[in-house]
């Protein structure tokens, strides 16, 4: 089972598994607030990444909430908020 909190490294790994990366795109840098658009990820790539995050972290993410998470920080916060909500429920 995965750790209870999702990290930027988790997101990097899931993005690569889900949608790969463009040559010349350095996901290893500080990408926390870089819009997914600028990282080369479109809505379908994020849908696939979201599907994998749901499986891995056991959370439920609506299409709407995924669409609103336009940066790595927003997506990580979204998953961790769901995890916290699940833990306190």
């Amino acid at each position: 089972m995965a750790d209870a909190r999702m990290t930027l490294d988790d997101l990097r790994r899931v993005l690569l598994e889900a949608a790969g990366a463009d040559e010349g795109m350095d996901l290893g840098g500080d990408i926390t607030d870089t819009p997914f658009d600028d990282l080369g990820y479109d809505s379908l790539a994020l849908m696939e990444a979201g599907s994998r995050l749901q499986r891995e972290f056991g959370v439920s993410l609506s299409d709407e909430s995924l669409a609103e998470a336009t940066t790595p920080r927003a997506l990580i916060d979204l998953v961790n908020d769901r995890l916290a909500a699940g833990a306190s429920a």
Partner: peptide
């Protein structure tokens, strides 16, 4: 092909 193309 780029890494972005392969999964799709």
């Amino acid at each position: 092909l780029s890494g972005r193309m392969l999964p799709q």
